[in-house]
Amino acid sequence: MPHVRLDEVTKVFRPRSRRDSPVTAVDRVSLDIERGEVFAVIGYSGAGKSTLVRLINGLEPVTSGVVEIDGVPISALPARALRRQQQGIGMIFQRFHLLRSRTVAKNVAYPLEVVGTPRAEREARVAELLEFVGLAQKAAAYPEQLSGGQQQRVGIARALAAKPSLLLADEATSALDPETTAEVLDLLGRVNRELGVTVVVITHEMEVVAQVADRVAVMDAGRVVEHGSTYEVFTAPQTPTAQRFVRTVVRALPEGEELAALRAAHEGRFFTISFSDAGASEARVFGALARAGVDFNLVHGGVDDIRGRVYGLLTIAVRGPEEAVAAALAQVGPGVQITETGR
C-alpha cells in the first residue's frame, strides 16, 4: 500500500465575488507516494502545488477525489478524526511560521501539547529533537533571535515532535540563501534516512529536486503533467514544462544564436555527447578521439550530479579526417550517445 495515495483529486476554489470565475487549483491528480521515499512536486507559482500539499494533510478539503494516507481516506474524515490524523503528519513552511510568543523549546513542544504528552516526556523529547537539528543551545531563544536557516531547523524539529511518518515541506528552502538551503536539504535527507520518514517536497527550484528527491512530479496549471524517478525526468524530460525546469540546472544543447556564435568561433564538425550511465564518462570519448589523432575542442555543456548519478551533455568541435573521426566515435562503448549537431 502506498503511504500517500491521491486518486483523481480536484480542488476548485469558489470565486470571491460573483464577477470572478471559480479557480481549479488542482485538476484530477492521481499519485502514489511510497513509504520512505523523498517525493518532490515541482511547478511554477500558481501551478497548484501548495494547494496539493494542503489536500494531503487535510488543511483544505478536496472538491472531489480521494486522498488516502496509510489507506485512511483523510479527505472523508469528520473534523475531530481529521485532527487526529493530522497529528501524525508534520509540515514545514517557506516562512517557518514559528510562534513569536514562544521560545524555541516551547515551539517544538507545541505539537506534543496538542497530542497530550505529559510534561516530563515532552521536555525530554524537545531536548532530543533540538539535539537532532543541532540547536540545543538555542532552546531558550525566541524565533526572531535566530537566522532563517536556524528558524527552519526549529520548524523541522517542531514538525517531527509528534513522531510523524510523513513530512510535508512547502517551499521550505525558498526563503533561504543557497548555503542555508543546502543545510536544510541535508537535514531533510537525514530525516528521511535516519528516521525513515516519508518526505514530500514542494518546490520551484530544480536544484532542490536534484539534491533530495527520489521521484518527482511536474505540475502545470493544476495537473501533474509528468512524473517519474528524478534521474529519468532530468535526463529525458517529456513535456515542455519539465524541459524548461531541467534546463535551469542541466545545460541544454546550444540552439539558434548561441549555436551560430559557437560555429563562428570554432572550426570543424560539431558532435554532442550525452552520457547517462553509471560507468560512462566523457573521458572515454576524449581518449578515443586523441588515440585516433583527431583534434577536438569542448565548446559547450556540462556534467551534473543527479542524486549521486552522473549526467552529462557536452558539445565538441572536431577537426580531422572523416574516417578517423568515424572510427574513433565507433569505439566508444555503451552508455554514451553521440550525435552530430545539425547545421
Binding site: L82, Q86, F93, L99, V115
Partner: peptide
C-alpha cells in the same frame, strides 16, 4: 501562517 501551522499539527 502560524494559525495554519497549528491547524496542520491537528490543533
Amino acid at each position: 501562517g502560524v494559525i495554519e501551522a497549528a491547524r496542520a499539527m491537528g490543533a
